[in-house]
Amino acid sequence: MNRQGSSVQASGIHADAPKTAIEGTTGPQPHRSRGRRFPAPLVTGTALIASACLVALISLWWTPFDLTGVDTAGSLLPPLSDGHLLGTDRLGRDVTSQIMAGARNSLIVGGAATGIAIVVGVVVGLITAASGRVAREVITRVIDIGVAIPALLVALVLATVLGPGRATVIAAIVISFVPWAARVSVGPARQILAREYVEAAFAYGRSRWYVMMRHVLPNIGSLIAVQAAIMFATAVLAEAALSFLGVGEPPPAQSWGRLLSESQSVAHQAPTLVIFPGLAITAVVLGFMLLGNGVHALLDPHQRRREMEARE
């Protein structure tokens, strides 16, 4: 099928007008319809994350109950009692309000950590890919060491040095993500650098910097976007874990991880106190994972073309 297709096009080059005209009219059509089909994971993931963002935003101005209101008389109420949609915790605080405010924390930490780590990591990756052999070997080893450093230990050490808090959590996640982001971008960047269009760009005098920014970065962009989504998911998990361990922002700030750790002791009396924050974490993590897959499917031109061929 492929061979036939190309020989038809080849005869079109003979430059007799009708054939090229036909090519001209049929060519761009799949191109136009491309935008309308969004893969299901992308839609689901976007919906999950959009609702998490919306909840976080709303929590800035409104929560069903006061966030700091402690009411020991009304503690451990089951869901749907006294207007508490998801019940109350050990100190009588409204779980719905706590989860809403916790979303804010998760998204801020996840977004900041992922953003910083991706920018720094990708820059390191691009520099590594563009370096000569010796420099590249050295940086690659350093990156390998960075990947091997246990993130949890870094976080606990940081917490003792800087004290617990949001900045500590972000710093700990960034430190463990940067080598990862760098390592993920080196290979693909080198693949792009080996392409003929990069050689052509050097042959017409483009600088290494220009080639990295205008040819390499856009062509590994979809891959980086996918990595960023997965990192965001991991960062949300890491934030929950670190807050659970007490490295995160101390009370009265809200966090899903601390909600879980605080509910540990009463989990057998009120299992919903563990289930709801757990579900919230799962939803956001799943949302970013799906988003990552969806972005990958949407942006990868090769996969897109294969899909187009499969439909024909």
């Binding site: 392409r195 003929e196 269009y197 050689e199 052509a200 042959a203 017409y204 005098g205 040819h215 856009p218 062509n219 031109p301």
Partner: peptide, 19 residues
């Protein structure tokens, strides 16, 4: 020098940035 020395490659589909 670049202006005066130009190149055409073996693989035409790799010779252009897909984006």
């Amino acid at each position: 020098f670049r202006r005066q020395n130009q190149l055409v490659f073996q693989n035409p589909s790799g010779s252009f940035d897909p984006r």
